[in-house]
């Protein structure tokens, strides 16, 4: 199967006070048509910067895409002009942000905003865009869409705002939707509603979905494949069930052992990962995880490991074979 999105060796750095923060440092991954891919990692792992790079939304300065390729449907997005990127963004690739209150314009009605991509990309009249917007709001199950379309974002609850964001992202029937922590700000029961809706609608429209999250439960429930990020790199990638049942990178293993879980045995203490994530402006030598890794050997300090095959659908970037060591 050919990939809809191919990211190759992406490096996005930020310049601050004479130092260079390597937010994304050589990331490669694929998204195939119609699938759901998760990017999971903790704060500062580079997952949001990866998403913003794909959409060419990195503020420059201070940010800069240093190198790499981002091929979407066969075209390298990094070589396109700003005007050409604008034709793709919000049209063929849509983004859903974490905080719907700050990503919606407070002074425009929800209806105008949801209809805006249709006006811009499909040159629809305002009337046509409005009608289509009502249909979209109906689709994301906002009650009384005709009335609610006239409301302003502050009149919506958090869950409703995120539904409106989903409606907006679907407006031009994109091939790819990138959702950056779409439900982190929402309550548990509303989070489940919104993610189910997103999954259902992407399945219906055939759009591929990239979910950026820190929640391994969300990954397990919704993603077909997963990329685990640490300090600007993908350290492990593969089918979701394979990664959860057979994790190979010590960081992935550590994350899973440190999670309290509803299906877990509560009599045992959690096994945290000791220490803290590294300073991205001052990365340790070799593998970035090495200072926190209980399996680290000399080689880990000397050279950062590249992703290598565990099996054809599972890659991990680690010098140590956990099966042998453990």
């Amino acid at each position: 199967m050919t990939s809809l999105l191919e990211v190759r060796n992406l490096k996005t750095y930020f310049h601050s006070d004479g130092s260079v923060v390597k937010a994304v440092d050589g990331v490669s991954f694929d998204v195939r048509a119609g699938e759901t891919v998760a990017v999971v990692g903790e704060s500062g792992s580079g997952k949001t910067v990866t998403a913003l790079s794909v959409l060419r939304l990195i503020p420059d300065p201070p940010g800069e895409i240093i190198s790499g390729e981002i091929r979407f449907a066969g075209r390298d997005l990094l070589s396109l002009s700003e005007a050409e990127v604008r034709k793709i963004r919000g049209n063929r690739i849509a983004m859903i942000f974490q905080e719907p209150m700050t990503s919606l314009n407070p002074s425009l009605t929800v209806g105008r905003q949801v209809g805006e991509p249709i006006e811009i990309h499909q040159r629809a009249s305002r009337k046509n865009a409005w009608d289509k917007c009502i249909a979209l709001l109906h689709k994301v199950r906002i009650p009384d869409p005709e009335q609610r379309a006239n409301a302003y974002p502050y009149q919506f609850s958090g869950g409703m705002r995120q539904r409106a964001m989903i409606a907006m992202s679907l407006a031009c029937e994109p091939e790819l939707i990138i959702a950056d922590e779409p439900t982190t700000a929402l309550d548990v029961t509303v989070q489940a509603q919104v993610l189910h809706l997103l999954k259902e609608l992407t399945r219906e429209t055939g759009a591929a979905l990239v979910i950026i999250t820190h929640d391994l439960g969300v990954v397990a429930r919704y993603a077909d494949r997963v990329n685990v990020m640490y300090a600007g790199r993908i350290v492990e990638t593969g089918q979701t069930s394979e990664i959860f049942n057979n994790p190979k990178h010590p960081y992935t293993v550590g994350l899973m052992n440190s999670l309290p879980r509803l299906d877990g045995d509560v009599r045992f203490a959690l096994q945290p990962i000791e220490g803290h994530p590294p300073d991205l402006a001052n990365l340790p030598s070799g593998c970035a995880f090495q200072p926190r890794c209980q399996y680290a050997v000399d080689r880990c300090l000397a050279k950062p490991p590249e992703l290598s095959e565990v099996n054809p659908e599972h890659l991990a970037a680690c010098w140590v074979d956990l099966n042998v060591t453990a």
Partner: peptide, 15 residues
Amino acid sequence: QALLSAVPMPSPDAE
């Protein structure tokens, strides 16, 4: 019951 059901568990098999 609904609250517990809404929490995704970090296990694709369980999910």
